[in-house]
Design a protein around this nucleic acid. Sequence first.
DNA 1: TTTCATGTAACTTATGATGTTTCTTAAATT
DNA 2: AATTTAAGAAACATCATAAGTTACATGAAA
Lengths: 149, 149
Amino acid sequence: MRKDSRLSRMLHVLIHMDRLGGPATSERIAKMLSTNPVVVRRTMAGLREQGYVTSVKGHGGGWSLAMPLHKISLLDIHNALGESSVFTIGLSDEYTHCPIEQAVNKAIKDVLIEAESLLLERFGEVSLDVLAEGFVDLPAPSFDEGKGY
Amino acid sequence: MRKDSRLSRMLHVLIHMDRLGGPATSERIAKMLSTNPVVVRRTMAGLREQGYVTSVKGHGGGWSLAMPLHKISLLDIHNALGESSVFTIGLSDEYTHCPIEQAVNKAIKDVLIEAESLLLERFGEVSLDVLAEGFVDLPAPSFDEGKGY
DNA sequence: TTTCATGTAACTTATGATGTTTCTTAAATT
DNA sequence: AATTTAAGAAACATCATAAGTTACATGAAA
């Protein structure tokens, strides 16, 4: 089943952005992610709406962090990306008034809710500055020269 | 993102099968699930390989439960369906030796592992007989007449 | 006023699950 | 023995949707 790696990739980008002097263009970020500027804009738009990044048009423009990394958690970015569910597991809806289907779906749903709660809680506990720790002086060659890093 | 409802649907089917006198044909199960006999065979094949159901060819053949419901857990069927991961969230692999990407991916992965462990543990605690309880005398009209139930 | 960069809509492509067709194998009924 | 019923399996078609692409509008700086 298809995976959504936007969270991982956006976190990676945000931490590199934190080291950049100025804004990063969609073009530049797209090269880093081996993708395409429009896809970057699409994805970053969600983060901008929630106030984590800002975008500036025109010459010298691009994307910038709107707050320090320690104020951003994995949960924040996860939510900003707006993916409905974290699970590939879904419930059937063929016979919604069959009591057996109801019992089956309730059992599965209860477990999914519990597991998702734990996951979101843990995501909320990790802020991006912690992930960036220990690499403070590291440049970001991937930003400048494609797959160098 | 696409959902995989095979677990929910197969559990539903297995519990109904438990009430049937004889074997259920792929055709019959397919009608119940509004799908197609080949898809049913494909899905049931995994359950057969793990010993939860048996199949018999020819006249009067079809699918039967190979053990009582109390010996089968949600985890058993989940595993038998052979889905690799329960999460839609994936990790990036663009810069596997970038320490930032590594840190990001490790943080996400740790959370996914913890949440998946909880989920699998809970799935293991629920056996199918519990889901079937309280509906002992209920017939399975959905098996006989399409969407009636 | 030209260049650079985002914003947005519309469209195309790629991928993977699901659905379908066709034929084979095997077992029970006639 | 021939027929019918049903699973097994391979090959192919369809569908949903995320990702990628194109094209053009908007806005800001050089």
